[in-house]
Amino acid sequence: MSDSLSDLSSKSIQEISECSNLKELELLRVKYLGKKGAITKQLKALGKLTPSERPKAGQKINILKEKVQSLIDARKIVLADASIQEKIESSSIDVTLSGRKNNRGNIHPISSILYEIESIFHNSGFRVEDGPEIEDEYHNFTALNIPENHPARAMHDTFYFNANYLLRTHTSPIQIRSMETHGVPIKVIAPGKVYRRDSDITHTPMFHQIEGLVIDKDINFTHLKGMLHQFINTFYKRDMELRFRPSYFPFTEPSAEVDILSKDGSWLEILGCGMVHPKVLENLKIDPEVYTGYAFGMGVERLAMLRHEIKDIRLFYENDLHFLNQFK
């Protein structure tokens, strides 16, 4: 009995110290300490001894049991360390290799600017209005104080479908349509595509404009100047120097072009504006003695060209990925 216990002891110590991986170690634990393990069996066999033999023998077995348990625990730590070490050593990667990814797409630069401007105006209380791209003569010209054969019609080389329908030459007809729908007071902007029969390095037959209109009882030129200056500062994210130059639009009077002072000291024209012409208001049965307002319009391509230093407007509509991919 005693012999077999010491055999068990020396054998288990040897086996545990020679064990080389965690799986084997677990098997050894089962072999000695499991439900049917050798040491467990010894404990169960205590019942066969006389009561006087039992305590001593039991104590010996328990000492062995604890010893084996602690040996296994210690060995486990050693083996776990070794196994982690081995994993690290056997599995390193090339961290400089490029990551797994797919291409990301891009938003068209014109869309980005439209989005930005729409958002700036939305935040200051402007409603966004849309209108048809195929317009009638009345909304595109007549209602805007541009009668038939007026030389101002020559300023807009127009695409026609027939005597009445045409492709809108500016977003200004949306002014008329939104006043027809909502009446006054009104505070709207209207972004959209416009069309003129023109094509060269600075003109494409289709381009984008954003039109704005504010009409209320006490609106005057100082408000127009104040609002546009704030808008331009917001858009350029810095304090900009502006100048207002007299100009001509049939539907505003006084009319002005707005130039910004560029970093190189030259003036760049960026938008047209003015006080809504009393005739336009009268056309809509709005009393110009009570209501006044201002309107403004800007070319989106021009703003994009200035921002990204693009010289040829036609690039916007070639849709070449070499071009589009540059606007991340």
Binding site: I110, S111, F159, K193
Partner: peptide
Amino acid sequence: ILTEIGYSEVINYSF
């Protein structure tokens, strides 16, 4: 969503 999946936006003439 679309740019994340790799789509780039284009703008074509309406005619």
